[in-house]
């Protein structure tokens, strides 16, 4: 369990304010923040002279390596030791790190990332007791935190981002912080001046809420342009074709159930066991359809379903074809 941010004493300092220290512990599962913290420390040390950098994976660590890496250098360079993956550390690392925490070597910066979980809790406690700097790398959950992250990115680059722009960016890409970070750097490099909502829309518009249901709704309403661009966004953001076909099938099924039935939505809702809003939506969409097209499209989706589940070599083409045909069959 991640400690709630800002309430616990152990939550640690923000990664933006991290500075070289004998021992630094990055705690939290957000890889992007951790790698930013690694970079900051590295850059700060490099700014003040030559450094000798050693990297370890805590899971593949061999006994004695830490001692070797932290023993004084012949050329009296500053030493930086980066250790990743403490959440899966092996016993050797645990023992060596515990010993090291008792007597940290001079002129060495040891920076470690622990992604979360209970593995190595003893070491974490020992590090904290020994005065290690704890940096908070917990995932950003609230939109406000993400908006804050985006604004800080722009501020760090001395650029302006409007409040609407920040909100639009988070709405489009907020699910994945590393994508959000990448989008920020793309906007910073590609544009000049103030970044506002128009600019964000130009780059990431339509990406908002690209789910299978949005695709299905647009297709059944006969809006081929919207359906296809939403589909492309959904596929590009990693939605599998299978659930998209499933939502097409479900929407068609709902429309088919209410098509040509002259009953009120309330009556239908209780007969079909569907919520009234769903019945109303289906009735609304049914106006675009005639029975033969509906039948043809149900057959088409069944075929696409088989194709995305292995009958075809190109599942994305199969779902795209189904979406195109459905959108064209629906009357605007």
């Amino acid at each position: 369990m991640a400690a709630p941010r800002g309430t616990s004493k152990n939550a640690g300092i923000s990664w933006r304010t991290v500075a070289p220290a004998p021992m630094i512990l990055l705690q939290g599962s957000e890889e992007l923040l951790a790698s930013r913290a690694f970079e900051l420390v590295r850059a700060a040390l490099r700014a003040s002279g030559e450094i000798e950098l050693t990297r370890f994976e805590a899971a593949a660590y061999e006994r004695g390596e830490l001692l070797l890496a932290s023993s004084p250098s012949l050329f009296s360079e500053t030493k930086l030791v980066e250790v990743r993956g403490l959440a899966t550390m092996n016993e050797d690392f645990l023992n060596d790190a515990l010993t090291y925490a008792k007597s940290p070597a001079p002129d060495v910066t040891l920076i470690m990332h622990h992604g979360g979980g209970v593995r190595g809790k003893k070491l974490l406690d020992a590090l904290k007791a020994a005065g290690a700097v704890v940096v908070d790398c917990q995932p950003l959950k609230k939109d406000a935190e993400k908006i804050d992250f985006v604004s800080q990115e722009f501020r760090a680059a001395k650029r302006k981002l409007s409040a609407e722009g920040a909100r639009a960016l988070v709405a489009a890409l907020g699910n994945d912080l590393s994508e959000l970070g990448a989008a920020c750097s793309q906007l910073l490099q590609d544009t000049t001046g103030i970044v506002d909502q128009d600019v964000v829309d130009k780059y990431y518009g339509g990406r908002v809420e690209a789910t299978g249901f949005k695709v299905a709704d647009a297709a059944l309403a006969g809006r081929a342009d919207i359906a296809l661009s939403t589909l492309r966004h959904a596929l590009a953001t990693g939605t599998d074709p299978v659930p998209i076909v499933a939502s097409l099938a479900m929407k068609l099924r709902q429309v088919a159930k209410v098509a040509g039935v002259r009953k009120s939505s309330g009556q239908l809702a209780s007969e079909l066991g569907m919520p009234p809003w769903q019945v109303q939506q289906a009735q609304e969409q049914a106006r675009h359809w005639n029975p033969d097209d509906l039948a043809r499209c149900i057959r088409l989706v069944a075929e696409a379903d088989a194709q995305v589940k292995g009958a075809s070599r190109d599942p994305e083409y199969a779902v795209e074809r189904a979406v195109t045909q459905i959108s064209l069959a629906a009357r605007r």
Partner: peptide, 21 residues
């Protein structure tokens, strides 16, 4: 034929049923 493939059985049967109109 299709019910033995991994496809959704309900969808397969629906596609058949609309052809029986």
């Amino acid at each position: 034929k299709r019910i033995w493939t991994p496809g959704n059985p309900l969808l397969t049967i629906e596609a058949m049923a609309v052809s029986l109109r």
